[in-house]
Amino acid sequence: MISKTKPNKKLLITILLIIIPLTTANCQLTTDGNILSFQNRLRFGNYLYKDQDYLRAADEFKEYLRSENNDTVVFRLANSYFQIGRYTEAAGNFKGLFFNSQLSEEARLMFYESIFFQNDYKLFRVLAEERNFDSSLYGKDIERLKYISYFLDNTDLPSENIVLKSFPDSVQSRLINFYQQKKFPQHKSPTTAAILSTLIPGAGKIYTGEIGDGITSLIATALTTYLAITNFNADHQFRGWLFSGLAAFFYAGNIYGSAASAQIYNARIQFNFDKEVKLFFEQRNYFLPKVDY
């Protein structure tokens, strides 16, 4: 009896050894074996989503959602659009989760984020102030985002206390600094610069901080004027008129250049301020909580 059962056991083990690898192979596929089934599309979409290939993940989620509605998938679809900068589509999809969804609060926050990152800050503030889609969980974050938006466009800032109260203590002094710079920018007047250069060539440039340029302009205008006079005195009419023309050119050019220099100065101040503010908020992720599902 024993001798009969042994070969059977061996045979069984051999068969199992052959079958097990074959059946476990391609285990990624679900039982229907169809790579393009809705379930497989969802699994593939989730893989792409984790791999941060959001554009392709969105396509897969969209296909899956044709078969079945699933809040997490809708959220991931919206977040995929958000991640690739398609904020309008992201906002539209987040909106679909506002009611009767467990992800309602997160979707509301992400909806406001989508509007915010479209850079249409006026629309964002209108929506935030209407409070139609207010979030009980993330209301303070949305409000903070509203105050951040004031730093990022040309709208007049609300009073300092109102703006600053939404932010943590650790950044208060930095924000006060930004607030003061935004409210009272250190601009130079192009008219003043032009008038100064009319009176003393180069003075307008010195006023706008271009000291080297200002002194050069003064010397160039003075020298060409001097050369015009000495050439006229030496009876070199052509050279006299040539240097007169050059002197007039330097003089007029300096007046125009001073006004332009003031405008460039103002633009530079504004550019640096915008860059600094943007970097400050970007580094802190706009004080937003990380939300993902």
Partner: peptide, 14 residues
């Protein structure tokens, strides 16, 4: 093509 190759890669567990 990339999408389909990636899909194949995902399901080709062998």
């Amino acid at each position: 093509a990339i999408t389909e190759y990636k899909r194949l890669q995902f399901f080709d567990s062998t």
